[in-house]
Amino acid sequence: MDFAFLFQTMKTLLAAVPMTLALFFLSIFFGGLLALLIVWMRVAKNPVVRNFAKGYIFVFRGSPLLIQMFLVFYGLGQFGFIRYSFLWPFLREPFVCAVLSLALCTGGYTAEIFRGGLRAVPAREIEAARSIGMSGFLLVRRIIGPIAFRHALPAYSTEIVMMVKSTALASLVTVWEVTGVAQRLISQTYRTMEVFLCAAAIYLVLNFLILQATALLEHRLSRHRRAAPRLP
């Protein structure tokens, strides 16, 4: 075992972790916001709005994320109205393209996860809220949202873990995150096994921490489903 090489590899890869985390947090954040918009459209009464959301979810769930990312990275620049718009300085950045396509994709998946949560909200608890005069945004914020989120959390934590792994695709549009840096190391050293094992270990640790965090959140939000605490 060449510990000196492993140590050196680990050090180089760890330096790329902030980039992986930046991709992850930004795409989860914007993807989450997008999911709220899409799910709101998906359950709307207006058939045009509803079908638009259905179509969006179908397209982004139904096609490979890698192809979506290539289309954003290589494809958008072909359109003059984008190339010559104020957005171009952002959209020609690989990092922005990667975050954009990750967010667009997770937005579709997350919308479906949130919709599952919404469907699990008991109608009678909504009715109780209406009967005391709640409606509109207040009703969503205080009753529907919190209950739906609790139901969605287990599936959503899976989606979050998937997103950590999906950031590896950004290496293919020249973003130097953990996988990209690993591939560069391999092309320099030809030591595939050691380098990829180090990279895999980093993803495992990241996901371990994220799963712990979501499990803790789930635990805290499900007090009402556990047995009553025994009072002295």
Partner: peptide, 23 residues
């Protein structure tokens, strides 16, 4: 709908299946 909310707030409703907010 504002008046509907206002009227509902003035009428207490007790349901057969309690309908407390479980969370």
């Amino acid at each position: 709908s504002r008046q509907v909310d206002h009227i509902r707030a003035e009428l207490g409703m007790v349901f057969q299946s309690f309908n407390l907010w479980s969370h």
